[in-house]
């Protein structure tokens, strides 16, 4: 039976969607804020801030994962504090996987949103100001709607990157069935077992289908937005 998912596949797929979904939703406000700071503000140390945000793009994911372990692990600088005060454990849980995915996908999200914000006509924002909108209201009623196609592209890109996240995840949260074994990690585990060619291929196909569906959805949404603005 090619078209029904096995329990293992269903588990990995739903875990991947959960982890990636939370990674994107959780990092989106920070992503929009960072993109806005980079697109619209000038301050000393801006290039340092820019570099810091882009760092996960050029670092080996294993380094990111290890850094997260050091920072957010049960005995880590921040992790110990989180556990003592709130009883929150991130290492070796799906929440930790979401954080690892979010960190790795963050630069891609910020880049896309920053480009979109830079493309928004400042004259329209000025017009909104003269019509009685404060800076925050202007941002939500003019800037964001106009940047929406780019924000959407950033979200989809980050989502796809999260789906494919492997190195940082396996370093930070390891491979725990039902908790942190996402699609790529399940696939990696299968490739370590001799004679698992068919289940590995099935996981490959599932990954391709999910990624492709995400891209298609973003294309359709972006097209609809364009039509709405031109009609």
């Amino acid at each position: 039976m090619w078209f029904t998912l096995t329990p293992l596949e269903r588990e990995a797929l739903s875990l991947s969607l959960l982890v990636s979904g939370w990674a994107v939703v959780g990092s989106l406000p920070f992503g929009i804020f960072s993109a806005w700071v980079l697109a619209r503000r000038d301050f000393p140390g801006k290039s340092l801030f820019d570099g810091l945000i882009h760092l996960p793009l050029v670092l080996p994911p294993v380094v990111v994962g290890y850094a997260l372990l050091v920072l957010l692990g049960r005995k880590g600088v921040v992790g110990a504090w989180l556990y003592d005060w709130f009883g929150i454990t991130l290492a070796f849980t799906w929440k930790g996987a979401a954080i690892a995915s979010a960190v790795v996908a963050f630069p891609l999200m910020v880049r896309a949103i920053r480009l979109a914000l830079e493309g928004v006509d400042r004259g329209l924002e000025q017009a909104a100001r003269t019509l009685g909108c404060g800076p925050i209201r202007t941002f939500f009623s003019v800037t964001m709607p106009l940047a929406m196609p780019g924000v959407l592209a950033g979200v989809i890109l980050a989502f796809a990157r999260s789906l494919s996240e492997f190195g940082a995840t396996i370093t930070f949260v390891s491979n725990i069935p039902g908790e942190t074994r996402t699609l790529p990690i399940a696939l990696y585990a299968l490739t370590q077992v001799p004679g698992s060619d068919e289940p590995a291929l099935r996981l490959c196909i599932i990954s391709v289908v999910v990624a492709f569906a995400a891209l298609l959805a973003s294309e359709i949404l972006a097209h609809r937005m364009r039509v709405r603005m031109e009609g």
């Binding site: 004259g123 329209l124 000025q126 017009a127 100001r129 003269t130 009685g132 909108c133 404060g134 800076p135």
Partner: peptide, 15 residues
């Protein structure tokens, strides 16, 4: 700030 001035502004390009 502009939003507190209550002045109408018609720009060269419609905006």
């Amino acid at each position: 700030p502009p939003e507190s001035r209550r002045l109408g502004y018609v720009f060269q390009e419609h905006r």
